[in-house]
């Protein structure tokens, strides 16, 4: 079971990113939970400046844009 965190202060793109990852997880039957992290202090502690960013099991995988379905599958498979 992997934990995916989408970092971002609630902008449209961040919300869309979280929804998209959730969608990919369901479609591919991946074992992961998706949560959103909006707390600026928490985002700061990941050292992320460009949101949306994606953290998988506490590791920053992606920053600054919406990831593609292929990327998401690669992280979570």
């Amino acid at each position: 079971m992997k934990t995916v965190k989408v970092l971002g202060s609630g902008c449209t793109k961040c919300v869309k990113t979280a929804e998209f990852i959730q969608q990919v997880v369901e479609q591919q039957g991946l074992d992961a939970t998706v949560i959103k992290e909006t707390n600026p202090e928490a985002i700061m502690n990941y050292g992320v400046m460009s949101t949306p960013a994606v953290v998988v099991d506490e590791q920053v995988k992606h920053t600054g844009s919406m990831p593609t379905a292929e990327q998401i599958t690669a992280w979570l498979a």
Partner: peptide
């Protein structure tokens, strides 16, 4: 280029 929704992470990133 950066979206205004990134202002806060950018602010904190610069500050740290």
């Amino acid at each position: 280029p950066f979206c205004s929704c990134s202002s806060i992470p950018v602010f904190l990133g610069f500050t740290t």
